[in-house]
């Protein structure tokens, strides 16, 4: 890192990458994978998400991870964004809830209201 300009360029690149359209993706799924999340099954949730997407042949969904933000009662926490829509936070998403979540929210574009973190 040599200069401010270099940093600025990386920042712009990173912001650009965040836009789903830039990646050619239809949706984004973020799994909270801190110790608290993993302790109650975030790894299984992550695996289930990847498997479900593969099974349905969905290749244009970005799946990433993040830290656990503190909502311990709601772990595993999964955030979903479809298109340039709102980033929605779901709580208690164990592996068994993944197929429904993907079917309803990613494919159907419908927020699963019962699972939202409130």
């Amino acid at each position: 890192m040599k200069s401010l300009e270099e940093l600025q360029k990386i920042k712009e690149r990173a912001l650009q990458r965040r836009k789903l359209a830039g990646e050619g993706a239809r949706a984004r799924i973020i799994v909270a994978m801190g110790t608290t999340g993993i302790a109650v099954g975030a790894r299984d949730t992550m695996t289930a998400i990847l498997r479900e997407l593969e099974k349905r042949g969905i290749g244009d969904v970005v799946v990433t991870q993040t830290g656990s933000a503190g909502m311990s009662t709601y772990e595993p926490v999964v955030q979903v964004q479809v298109g340039e829509g709102e980033l929605v936070t779901y709580g208690n998403i164990d592996a068994s809830r993944v197929p429904t979540l993907i079917e309803k929210h990613i494919l159907g574009g419908e927020v699963v209201a019962d699972w939202l973190v409130r």
């Binding site: 890192m1 940093l7 990458r17 801190g34 503190g70």
Partner: peptide
């Protein structure tokens, strides 16, 4: 940034004004 950015991607931190203070 906790629960928001990908901790394994430094550019995700830079996108949130990361390392701007250091600069």
């Amino acid at each position: 940034n906790v629960g928001k950015i990908n901790p394994f991607d430094i550019e995700d931190y830079i996108a949130e004004d990361g390392y701007a203070a250091l600069a």
